[in-house]
Amino acid sequence: TTTKEDLQRLLQLLLRISTVVEEAEGRRIENRAMVRQISIMREQMFRGYYLLDAFRC
């Protein structure tokens, strides 16, 4: 795949993950494992957005 295609795919994945993270943040989750999983997802999401911005620049 080309860099452009990879960036497009990255954006699609980030949109999907951010939807789930946002949905999770709007719910009262007390399960520690789930909270941890959301935290990992959020971290990976920010990493992805950082990379996306870096490559776009």
Binding site: T1, D6, R9, L14, V20, E23, Q44, L51
Partner: peptide, 30 residues
Amino acid sequence: SKELKQAVLVLENMVADMEDFVIFLMSYPR
């Protein structure tokens, strides 16, 4: 670049594992 492909792969795997998580998530109240 290699870094970009690696990031895509990591997120692809994360999204693939997300299905069950989303179903479970929906059972929680807002």
